[in-house]
Design a protein around this nucleic acid. Structure first.
Lengths: 336, 336
DNA sequence: CTGAAAGCGCTTACAG
DNA sequence: CTGAAAGCGCTTACAG
């Protein structure tokens, strides 16, 4: 049994009325008599009529789709942001078109180029690492020139006048550092594989700003594997830090491995707090205290902001910014 | 500087030619003189003309978009499948609309309902756990009734006559079991949090079929947390298995934790092999031997298959199936 | 080689 | 209350 898609025209012919009448009836126009509305709807239901969304889009010059640009979908944080975006979009009857930049500026430019070709009503984007490094945001401005609203999420520490939704990166590490200090810990180190990114910088800034008088800042940071490992070795084994904060998954796992290989016991010899996915943090041996983020909330809020922008609910000459708070979750690595 | 989108009509007026001529010129029609083609293209480039994709779609009754249904985007396997799909789509100039079912049959039905409303040219779907449990595939057949091609990926062990791309789940665990046997291990157990899913069943089947004469099948399997934990305790602590295969992330992490808590040393007392993301497996202490899958390949192949189907390159009365092979990667947990 | 016309499937001012 | 007409932005047979 093949369902051939039925059109307005065909319905009209079957009903012996005009296409306009059918269209209006289906849209509950007050111009049409209740009786006709009923007849039309009945037949439409019988044939499982659905308006062709492409045609509707052409008339309304809206597509009902949102473009979402993701730097790296393997990063669980971004995967969950997407999940939040998709949930919100679903509620609002919007379609989400996904683009993955793989942290590449080149690819990101291709994507923004597609985005301006008129398919999407709005854009949610976390810029790629490469874009951040190059500080080249021309293609973002390019989208704006087409009057397509843009909301930046997570990686928002850049100077582009658009709406933004982010994480309290700086505060999270300031508070973690303060907590360790309050427990009498003096030698606190930090490891980072993302010190070159905005979020990395903010986390490091939070750590440094919270260090008390006379406390040394000890940072192992590199985006190159071996340099990072050597740096971690230095602060764990040579400098013998008593606690270490990790800004990202990779640095956390390398610290964890390094401690294991050098018989540094967690938490006895070393306290540890990191940005880690809950699922991994809980199951490690020992489990690692982590900063819980709420990526779905980031996604939902970014989508909501975009919707508000599209509906003209936000002031047109001013961009808004929203910060989603994190929470420090204590597990075995910070048992005192 | 605002770029107002320019249309064919406007270009035509500026050039003092007809809309048809402009359209043909831009499409390099042989009907049009080289000189006109050049003039038209020049002005189009100057104004950065891009055809309105919605209008093109309406004419061609194709949308250039593919719907992808993902059960759970937090699962790194699916995230990477999406990455492969997106990469292929990008190459082919197709847009990917993402839908997340959250393993819910209800949600999946809503999604398939949207999919049939005429937006997408084809569908890639991994059915949800709930769908699998309920064995309710009516909504999948529903898509087919609209003549929208469907390709199943990963969770393909169901009786629906469509193209499929999967993983060699059964073989992977059969080979892992054989390897352990060849090393003289007698007591091999298995842990699973996904025994109710097709992929879980296949992995378990592979394990059981490979067990040698007289070897006992020892399985801890449940989708309920505490039952799974108790089961793992039983095979590790009471039955004292010498090796354990884990079908999924959660069961692997629980085995890993359970061994740690009961002073069972890996690999001295217990060998371990599991389906784990590379990134986690490598960093654990000790690192855990894992079955490497190639989710991007699954995604790319599924997308390619769909494209072939759309282009009529596949036989219309027969569905194809492709299996992507896995690889066992030895790390510290299987040092003999 | 160029252009007028029809049409993809819808919506909506306007006329009756 | 109903319908004819115009139009969203494009493509493509057909006529000239």
């Amino acid at each position: 049994m093949m369902k051939n898609k039925i059109t307005l025209k065909e319905l009209a012919k079957l009903l012996n009325v005009s296409v306009s009448t059918v269209s209006k009836a289906l849209n509950d126009s007050s111009e049409i008599s209740p009786k006709t509305i009923e007849r039309v709807k009945e037949l439409a239901a019988l044939h499982n009529y659905r308006p062709n969304p492409v045609a509707v889009n052409l008339k309304s010059s809206k597509s009902g789709t949102i473009g979402v640009v993701i730097p790296n979908i393997s990063n669980n944080f971004f995967a969950k942001v997407l999940s939040g975006i998709e949930a919100k979009a679903q509620q609002e009857g919007l379609q989400v078109i996904t683009y993955i930049s793989n942290e590449s500026l080149e690819r990101e430019k291709q994507i923004t180029d597609m985005l301006t070709s008129g398919f999407v009503d709005g854009v949610l984007i976390a810029i790629s690492e490469a874009t951040h490094r190059a500080r080249n945001y021309d293609h973002i401005f390019g989208i704006l020139e087409y009057e397509i609203p843009v909301v930046l999420y997570d990686r928002i520490n850049i100077d582009v006048p658009v709406d933004k939704v982010g994480i309290d990166d700086e505060k999270s590490f300031a508070e973690a550092t303060n907590l360790l200090i309050s427990k009498g810990i003096k030698k606190i180190g930090l490891a980072s594989g993302i010190h070159h990114l905005g979020v990395g910088k903010l986390r490091i800034k939070g750590y440094e700003s919270a260090l008390a008088e006379g406390m040394e800042s000890m940072i192992a940071a590199s985006s190159r594997k071996q340099v990072l490992i050597d740096g971690i070795h230095d602060i764990l084994v040579n400098k013998k830090v008593e606690a270490v904060l990790c800004t990202d998954f990779e640095s956390a796992m390398r610290v964890y491995r390094m401690a294991y290989e050098n018989n540094i016991r967690i938490p006895e010899d070393l306290k540890m707090i990191g940005f880690l996915p809950k699922n991994v943090a809980r199951f490690l041996t020992p489990s690692i205290s982590y900063i819980e983020q709420f990526p779905e909330e980031v996604g939902k809020n970014a989508m909501q902001m975009l919707i508000d922008r599209l509906n003209g609910k936000l002031l047109s000459d001013k961009s808004t910014e929203k910060i989603i708070n994190t929470e420090l979750v204590h597990l075995e690595s910070t048992v005192f």
